[in-house]
Design a protein around this nucleic acid. Structure first.
Lengths: 302, 302
DNA sequence: AACATTTTATACTATCAGTATAAAATACTA
DNA sequence: TAGTATTTTATACTGATAGTATAAAATGTT
């Protein structure tokens, strides 16, 4: 991530949080970021694109935070799930971006609308997988249904509690209640199959967020290229971690849990360095690779 | 409702549906309505105010349609409730106003945001009362909880089905599933009281939509004034209905069911007349008066 | 017919998104 | 270090739009 770009995103983010997206003009951002108009348009083609970058960043933050929570935890522990879910509401409050996760934010802008829809599907898909972690494979056919119902209850309840009390309530309690509802309903759903989100609908939703599967070869290639460009300027910590990942990955019997454990350190090591963005991309690919082996090795969804 | 104003609202409504609120400029509305800029600002101080007028109108349409469905029906019939609920989704689709009923539509505009929040509370409050119609008084303490959960599931599910299939699914099926979920959960809720929306929270929400109670005296006064201004120009039907309502209302033992039955006719009679708006206001007051006697007389919530 | 109102046509201000460009600053490289 | 490439800056411009102002014309009322 470019230094300038980060500077702009930082300023824009603060302004959006403080005064809202619609009430922030590009000129406001430019002044706050202390850059010229040309520079802004050098990095973003519009205010929308800037917002989308912020949203993507938030999503990455969320994903990383959840993965860290999951480390060395039991994926079927309901309390861990409560904390993981709550993160999105803590984040969206911090960001003042209720719209980011809203059901039906009706942006004027098709572009933004689609990005937000995508984020919502990602969230629901994640939750569906976590439900399978907890309730087991038998839940798979109704996992999306459960995820959508519980997420709906959470978002709505938090929103209405917010309106009622004038301040944002702690999400944990709300999440817990929503999960209790789902817990009550699951036996009946399994029995009656009275659901809306059948296989075909779920596939259709997933297709909108599908990312190409990460092959081991491409991952090694990507990491090799990354390691090669590291120089003496980079810290020993960075170099050591990157090299270790590469060597481990090249083995035929790579240790998945070891790789998983090192991912967070690897991610953090490159913060604030010129390689930050690429490091995060690699971490993401690697995590997706590990995830694709999940069924065999029972690694937690996040 | 003024003729001009109606003309503007009509044009604006069509444009908003066709190309969205944000993509419609005031000049577009002016051209479509074939009026001048001055006239527009003569009736609305901004595009927002125009949107709010349309939203209010939609809400009135919805309320009227639901009341008509309720006439001569058993309030505890679940199928009637399904149809009544579905109306809002049919309407919001027709209007292309998903945001109208969205959870967290984050408008740039505080004004619009509050109107939408108000409409949402009205909807949830209505649904809570209908649940009491169906499940009985024992449900009252958890009626809001049930309403919020089921409405959340409906809105979310419809939205995601819409994304998945690319076209709006019939709401009835979705409504039915959501009501089934609530039906499953109610016994546990009654038993454990594990709810988020307790008395105080519900009161706080209701306070945001509270309308002053309608007294019989003020109602008679309002109706008397209305009748007095009717002239030969108005149809016999109009005059007869208005007078009958007035006479009946003045009795000490006014017949509530008779009044209720006549309300719809009264409402329709003044359509397209200069008195339309006032007639609708009176009908609304009268209905609220009847509703305030509901407990005693068991008139359906709508 | 006289008066009051609403509507129209038109011009104006102000804000904002986005484009264009030349000069200055910075980074890269041989 | 000198020279080249790039990024950034300052500035001016276009075009769209919200909203204001106003005088004349149309319409309604009594």
């Amino acid at each position: 991530m470019n230094k300038r770009k980060r500077q702009i995103i930082q300023a824009a983010r603060e302004l959006f949080i403080k005064q809202g997206f619609g009430n922030t003009s590009i000129m406001d951002i430019i002044e706050a970021a202390k850059i010229s108009k040309g520079t802004f348009y050098n990095h973003f083609s519009s205010k929308n694109e800037c917002l989308i970058a912020i949203l993507e960043e938030s999503r990455d933050e969320l994903t990383n935070a959840r993965r860290e929570l999951a480390l060395n935890q039991n994926p079927s522990d309901i309390n861990e799930l409560i904390d993981q879910i709550s993160l999105i509401f803590h984040l969206s409050r911090k960001e003042n971006f209720t719209q980011m996760f809203s059901t039906t934010f009706d942006s004027n802008d098709q572009e933004i609308k689609e990005v937000i829809e995508k984020h919502m599907i990602i969230e629901v898909d994640w939750l569906a997988n976590r439900f399978i972690d907890i309730y087991g494979e038998k839940l798979r056919p109704i996992s999306f249904e459960c995820a959508i119902h519980s997420f709906a209850i959470m978002v709505f309840s938090l929103h209405l509690l917010n309106i009622a009390t004038g301040s944002a309530p702690p999400p944990e309690k709300v999440v817990k209640v929503a999960l209790n509802r789902i817990d009550t309903v699951i036996p009946i759903l399994l029995e009656t199959k009275d659901i809306l989100f059948h296989e075909d609908i779920v596939q259709s939703l997933k297709s909108k967020i599908s990312t190409a599967a990460v092959s081991k070869e491409s991952l090694i290639e990507q990491l090799q290229g990354f390691v090669d460009q590291l120089s003496d300027k980079d810290s020993d910590r960075c170099i050591e971690l990157a090299n270790f990942l590469l060597v481990e990955l090249k083995k035929n019997d790579e240790k998945l849990y070891v790789l998983e454990s090192l991912l967070t350190s690897f991610n953090h090591a490159f913060n604030q360095t010129p390689h930050e963005k690429e490091a995060k991309e690699i971490a993401n690919s690697l995590w997706q690779y590990l995830y694709s082996k999940k069924e065999k090795f029972n690694i937690c969804t996040y």
